[in-house]
Amino acid sequence: MLKRTIPMLLAMAAGIVMILAYFFPWLTPLQDQTTVWFNILAAVAFILGGGNLLKVHLKKVSDRREGWAYSMITLAAFVGVLVIGLFKLGVNPLDDFPAQRMAGDFRAEGSGFWYVYEYVFAPLTATIFSMLAFYVASAAFRAFRAKNFEAILLLSTAFVILLGRTAAGVFLTDFLPEEGMLANFRLENLTVWIMNNPVTAGNRAIMIGIALGTASVSLKILLGVDRSYLGGGD
């Protein structure tokens, strides 16, 4: 009862309010109220995420599992940033409220949290994602094979897009006229056409498919048919 029925009813009630408000505008205040709570809970999810990380890495350190030294670094970074942020270290007070140090802007330039962003968080995350440029190059060399007609279509579209979206496209098909029928075959124009027609068609079909899928999964959950989100057990 407490473990399955109540949560299921809670999910149904919350979801149905959201849906009904669309059809009955006088339910909008209730929908807004529910959304306010939803948004606050999303912030708690951030805290939960931090708590989970703490739990996992503390366990790893206490068990002395392989790589526990790196877990120590993770924990140190976690605690360090948390203390800097929650206690607003290095934050200047607001000019009109100099007595209240904790009222200062924790993101302001020069604050401890700003240092963490500017010199640790931003460079590290940006670099990690930029590495994909290398891996995509390596994968392109090894895995992109024109094995059949479908693969050839994929490859030639990729070529047109890659070239047509840079000055190379303009240069390569500069011999074609700028006006008239043949102008459509200039790489930069061909790219625009591909994006506006076949690519839009393909993505639109995918979009419609996903939309119908999402709607049916949502409905299944709200009607209590799909209860997998409650997890296993009793």
């Binding site: 392109a140 490859l155 840079t166 190379a168």
Partner: peptide, 23 residues
């Protein structure tokens, strides 16, 4: 940024081309 983009794209096209040649 369109300058490194240009050479990067040409390299990608080249890599796919050579990769297929090997294939």
């Amino acid at each position: 940024r369109m300058a490194p983009q240009l050479s990067g794209h040409i390299l990608m096209v080249g890599l796919i081309f050579v990769g297929n040649l090997v294939y």
